[in-house]
């Protein structure tokens, strides 16, 4: 199982990484949407944790691109609750769940398991 962490904050990337390192065989990181798309094309991850507010390409745009390239990927949006409308747009585009920052490790693992439990038929 491969995980891709997309977040412009190094602290958040490290936090997600430490929380999910044991759950996945391989963990990759990207600090914006553009990097994330390149990784998705090469690696086709099973799960992506996606921030919404990032430089260069934001989360919603990135999810739309990921859906074109690798629609079988499970996506968990991890973001602060500044703009609920953007979070809803991300979910409408194809993300499978939302986790609000700040979060605990148990909330993170629980959300990842719930996202993985979804049967994707796309």
């Amino acid at each position: 199982m491969k995980l891709l962490i997309v977040d412009d904050s190094l602290v958040i990337r490290n936090k997600i990484n430490s929380g999910l390192l044991k759950r996945f065989d391989k963990v990759l990181r990207a600090k914006n949407g553009v990097e994330a798309i390149e990784v998705v094309k090469l690696v086709r991850p099973d799960v992506i944790t996606m921030d919404l507010t990032m430089p260069e390409m934001d989360g919603v745009e990135c999810i739309q691109e990921v859906m074109k390239v690798c629609p079988s990927t499970h996506i968990l949006v991890i973001s602060a609750l500044a703009d609920k409308a953007t979070a809803i747009a991300a979910l409408s585009c194809g993300a499978n769940g939302f986790l609000c920052k700040p979060f605990t490790q148990s909330q993170l693992t629980d959300a990842i398991e719930k996202v993985l439990a979804i049967q994707l038929s796309r």
Binding site: K84, L91, I118, Q119
Partner: peptide, 20 residues
């Protein structure tokens, strides 16, 4: 938009309460 999410099969309803 939020209500429509509950009818979409790719969404886990437990994971969207925060964006209500």
């Amino acid at each position: 938009e939020y209500t429509r999410l509950y009818f979409q099969s790719h969404i886990n309803p437990d994971l969207i309460a925060d964006v209500n």
